[in-house]
Design a binder for these strands. Structure first.
Lengths: 145, 145
DNA sequence: CACTTATCCTATTATGTCAATAGGAATTTA
DNA sequence: TAAATTCCTATTGACATAATAGGATAAGTG
C-alpha cells in the first residue's frame, strides 16, 4: 500500500492540469496522456477516482476535459494520495483495531505505527499542489512540521 | 512495499526475543509462536531473513533458539524493517532514477518523495528495540528529529 | 546410540492487489 | 450528423505477499 503508481500518477496528472494558463480551462486527458506519457485508459481510471474525491471538475463532450475543483493552494498532497489510493497509512495494522490487542507484547508496537502515520500525514498535508508548482524548497516545510 | 505483515511480525518477534530475562538465553520459535500466535513455519521464514541480516544469532538442536546479536539499544526499527522487507522507501520511484526524469513536469514531485523518504528513515532510525521495550513515549523522539 | 528438540533449506500454493487494457455508452460542441 | 470527449463496466496479466509443506541437519539428553 502506501504510495504506488496510482498515487504518483495522480499527483503528476493534477500538476499537469493545474499548470493550465487560465485555471478555468478544461484540459483533456488526451493532452495529459501525451505530456505525461501515460495511457489514456489508465488516466481515465485514475482521474475517475479524483473526480469522485471532488478534486477535479469535468466537462463532457467536445472541448471538454478536467480542471481543478479548488485552487491549487488548497489541495494538499495528502488529499491526492488519499483520494487516489483510499488512504495513506503505511501500516495496515490489524493489531491496532480491536480484540487481538489484548496481548501486551504487541502493544509495544502500536504507538510506533501510530506516530509514524501521524508524521507522514502531517508532512503530506503541509505540501500543496501550489507548493510543487512553485518548485518551493520542501525542506523548509519539512522543518516547520 | 513499505511496512507489510512481514515487517510488523519481524518487530514483534524481535521484541519477544529481546524480552528474555538473561538476554544471553536462546528463545525457541515454538515459544515465540505460542506467545505471538504466528505459525511456526511463517516465523521460520521471517527469522531466517533477520538472521541473514545479522540481527539475531541462532543455536541449533535441543535447547536451541534465537537471541539478539547486538544489544537492544543498538537495533533500530529501521534495521528491522530493512532486514525483513529489503528496504523502507514508501515510493518505488522509477521516475527518480534515470532517463525519464528529463521531463520537467515530473521533477516537481521528485523532491517531495525524497524528502518523505528521509523523514521516515530518520524516525525509524531514532527508535530502538530498547525504546519499545521500555514503552518509552515516542512523541518525545518524534519532536527531536 | 537412539530420541527429542530445534534450526535450516527448498519448494509450492493461494490469495489478492496493482497496473493496464478493452469496448462501448453517454454527452457536448460545431 | 460528426467529432471529441468523458463516463461506465469488465477483464486480463503480472507480481508480491502470506502462508504452508516436507524433509535435512545439528545438538543436547538419557
Amino acid at each position: 500500500m502506501m504510495i504506488s503508481t496510482k498515487g504518483r500518477y495522480a499527483l503528476r496528472i493534477l500538476l499537469d492540469i493545474a499548470s493550465a494558463v487560465p485555471t478555468t480551462e478544461y484540459i483533456s486527458l488526451g493532452d495529459v496522456a501525451l505530456r505525461q506519457e501515460i495511457s489514456m485508459k489508465y488516466l481515465e481510471a485514475i482521474v475517475a477516482t479524483l473526480s469522485r474525491g471532488g478534486l477535479v471538475e469535468s466537462k463532457r463532450g467536445k472541448a471538454g476535459g478536467y480542471r481543478l475543483a479548488r485552487p491549487a493552494e488548497t489541495i494538499t498532497v495528502a488529499d491526492v494520495i488519499c483520494s487516489a489510493e483510499g488512504g495513506i497509512s503505511p501500516v495496515a495494522c490489524p493489531e491496532c483495531d480491536g480484540q487481538s490487542c489484548s496481548r501486551a507484547g504487541n502493544c509495544l508496537t502500536v504507538d510506533l505505527w501510530r506516530q509514524l502515520d501521524t508524521m507522514i500525514e502531517r508532512y503530506l498535508t503541509a505540501v500543496t499542489l501550489q507548493d510543487l508548482l512553485d518548485s518551493r524548497d520542501l525542506s523548509v516545510l519539512f522543518q516547520n512540521i
